[in-house]
Design a protein around this nucleic acid. Sequence first.
DNA 1: GAACGGATTTTCT
DNA 2: GAAAATCCGTTCC
Length: 232
Amino acid sequence: MTPIPREFFARPSVQVAPDLLGCVLEHETAEGLVAVELTEVEAYAGQSDPASHAYRGRTARNAVMFGPPGHAYVYFTYGMHFCVNLVCQDADNASAVLLRAGRVIEGEELARARRARRTHKAGGDHDRAGQDSAALATRDLARGPARLCQALDIDRSLDGADVCTAGSPLRVRRRQTGAGTNVRSGQRNIRSGPRVGVSAAADVPWRFWLDGDPTVSAYRPWVARRRKLVTP
DNA sequence: GAACGGATTTTCT
DNA sequence: GAAAATCCGTTCC
């Protein structure tokens, strides 16, 4: 299985993002291999994009965005979640594509076990500890950026990982279209709209997804992240 | 089916 | 001190 060449990522993230739809991200660990077909992504530019982590310059967290293309930028957010990006273009642009959702095509049982594990942890210690992991819908396994990271067991240890090298545990490849595989209908329509959870530059349609795919997260028009009301 | 609170890091004011 | 590229269980329509 040949990874996508680095030149693929050496373009503006807005061009790379829609081309990533339908590509496969896979992570090989001691537990096994889990692979997802990407169904939803978002493009982030560098210092010209107020919604980008790179907007205010380089920090310890976003350093990978200021490096060569074809590497993973993994960050921790909201105190409990990881999200993964793929770095695009060159160091001066510090742009990347956020992977928002995917459809598990390999290692579904492992992905389900990981998601159930995390769900249990996040939900606290209730009597439901022994919750049946099969209760998780297949389409929800990697539906959302943090869920995708849970299913693939991606964390900060993969920050900076090269996804263009065959020997790397984390890599991106094109979907196999040969005979014998469960290839779905050929070209599906790609749609675009405003990015999710972003208040700055909300008018830029830099979110891309496969039209009608059940693993794409529901569209939230304004997401109006409710600010905590401060009582004086 | 929408809406809220909680978990609790990284960054900036 | 607060907001953020989030998810989940609960609660109220």
